[in-house]
Amino acid sequence: MQNVSQITRTPLTEYLLRLGDSVLVLGQRHAELCGKAPALEEEMALMNVGLDLFGQARNWLTYAAEQINAEQAGSELDADALAFKRDAQDFRNLLLVEQPNGDFADTMARQFLFDAWHVPLLEGLAQASDPRIAEVAAKSLKEATYHLRRSSEWVVRLGDGTEESRARMQRAIDNLWRFTGELVQFDEVDQAMADAGLAPDAGTLVARWKATVEKVLEAATLSHPPFDAWMYTGGKTGHHTEHLGFLLAEMQYLPRTYPDATVW
């Protein structure tokens, strides 16, 4: 069994893992929601989002595995090996998406803050000079655009709904805000990708994200902490919150418990 922790990472593989891990972990949070939606219609919608996210995760991680295999002699990874055999510190997802589902306001606030970033990111990636990235991004973008529409509407409904729903949504935004710094702070991997023409540059992405957040929160009659508030970061470099370990323990239970199994 190849030790997936020992893989060397180029900016491209590192970046593909960030993309894949974020949608994988957010997809896993949707799997946890199964049977818990506030209405049956919403059950359908949440699982459609979950299906989209797992599909995107499979596309990004498959490409990441192929890149790693091409760079490293003897490497035979696939998307499942990356999803189910890596430890928490090897995951590169955003801290935002590993936060627990909480109540429906927490779930929707998390989704909205992510979608508002995901859409302009994918728009940029769809223009990438790497045709594979462009193709996966273009497909994901259609899905993410719908996700953003839905999550925006829920933020507005709950923010501009009852007193209780407004309080819950405001609390959710305030709680999750500290995890949004990672969305817009570019590190050397992000910069290398942007410089190579493979990913959007910081300026466009940040401006779009902020504009969407401000517009929707205003419609929802909600406020938000300042954009330059203290931010909790580290997910993109493998420094996670306590939640990820439990999420992975559950998700990876079968492949880890039966390491000799080669098929499921």
Binding site: A31, G35, E43, M47, E250, Y253
Partner: peptide, 29 residues
């Protein structure tokens, strides 16, 4: 949906996860 949902978070591959999620969603539908 519930007995199957019990294994959705532990489905052992991405393919199985997608299949099971689609199936459970059909049941809600």
């Amino acid at each position: 949906m519930l007995p199957e949902g019990n294994w959705l978070t532990r489905a052992p591959s991405l393919k199985r996860k997608l299949q099971l999620m689609a199936k459970i969603q059909d049941e809600a539908g």
